[in-house]
């Protein structure tokens, strides 16, 4: 098994302490506001296609009629509609920041960016722009909490423990330069994460320019880059985890059965991810440009929200009379 595949296995563990289990990405608010689009599609072709998906199949009867009063098959297709909107807008608005942060981290780890402060300044720029683009206190809160958790995860869970480094016999000079290179990469990566973590902690109270907020997409990019994943893999996994988080929240809200959630994840989410990733692969955050960005000509290249309703619903999360999630 190659290193990247193994990393994907480790990172897709739902037990990773990332704090994502308290986030529903607006799903809970959407349910409370009765804004699942449970109405069947009106066009003939769409209706036919729905029939062929099988995502709303009868194999999962465990949900029965959930608290929303919608049947399990309706609930599957409503949650699929939510997922499509959510994946689309998250890919368009957040992934460019994750990709840019990933690239900076990779460049620093490989010594293409030599200076730690240069790498940190670039990450701070990406982080600050993401913050300016996130005009939603609920999403901002969830993003910062999960971002910081990822940095802690790397620092405390993914660096190589000293006893594993020291027990091995010393590597003969020049014999295994590849391994040596990898150690150098890892030590630079962990130095970057440690320094970023410090700035995020400082930024929670301070107002200094190079303090960071530690937004989720930025910290994800840093984590994935520090572990040595490729940018595309990192983006794919990040979006997959976003989708799985929504499905997991739906199961815990009891509006989707656990089998139906797996069905969606296996069959429906896959093509949605492929589409969202390919249509956003060319985007950049825009934070690293020296020259002024002319927004009127950048519709094709810059991050954007594509689901304004989701934004309002997410912002209204704190107004819900009863809630089990933080976002």
């Amino acid at each position: 098994m190659d290193k990247e595949t193994y990393l994907l296995l480790v990172l897709s563990d739902s037990n990773l302490p990332t704090g994502s289990f308290v986030a529903s990405a607006g799903l809970e608010s959407t349910a409370t506001h009765a804004l699942f689009h449970a109405t069947p599609p009106t066009t003939g072709s769409a209706a036919t296609a729905t029939g062929t998906t099988g995502t709303g199949s009868n194999t999962d009867t465990s949900t029965g009629t959930g608290p929303t009063g919608i049947s399990s098959s309706t609930s599957s297709s409503s949650i699929l509609a939510f997922l499509r909107n959510s994946i689309d807008t998250y890919a368009r608005s957040a992934l460019p920041f994750a990709r840019d942060a990933h690239r900076i981290t990779t460049a620093y780890a490989k010594n293409d960016i030599a200076d730690l402060d240069v790498a940190l300044a670039a990450l701070a720029k990406i982080d600050a722009l993401y913050d300016a683009c996130t005009l939603n206190h609920v999403a901002r809160r969830a993003s910062c909490a999960q971002g910081v958790a990822l940095l802690s995860l790397y620092a405390r869970g993914f660096t190589c423990p000293p006893f594993l480094l020291s027990t091995g016999t010393t590597i003969p000079q020049g014999v295994d330069s590849e391994q040596e290179q990898e150690r150098d990469r890892e030590s630079r990566a962990s130095a970057l994460v440690a320094a970023l973590k410090l700035r995020v902690r400082r930024g929670a109270g301070g107002e200094s320019d190079d303090d960071a907020l530690g937004h989720l997409p930025v910290c994800w990019g840093v984590l994935a880059g520090a572990l040595g994943l490729s940018v595309d893999r990192g983006a794919h996994l990040h979006l997959f985890l976003h989708a799985r988080g929504v499905l997991s929240a739906a199961v815990r809200m009891n509006i989707l059965g656990p089998y139906a959630a797996q069905q969606l994840l296996l069959h429906a989410v896959k093509p949605l991810l492929t589409e969202a990733l390919s249509s956003t692969a060319h985007l950049v955050s825009g934070a690293l440009r020296e020259e002024e960005v002319h927004l009127e000509f950048e519709a094709e290249r810059l991050p954007a929200t594509t689901w304004p309703l989701g934004e309002i619903l997410s912002m209204r999360h704190d107004l819900l009379h009863s809630r089990i999630f933080n976002s």
Binding site: H37, A46, A49, P271
Partner: peptide, 11 residues
């Protein structure tokens, strides 16, 4: 599988 076509109005 073919996911149903989704329009802007759906969103």
């Amino acid at each position: 599988l073919l996911l149903p076509r989704r329009t802007l109005a759906d969103r």
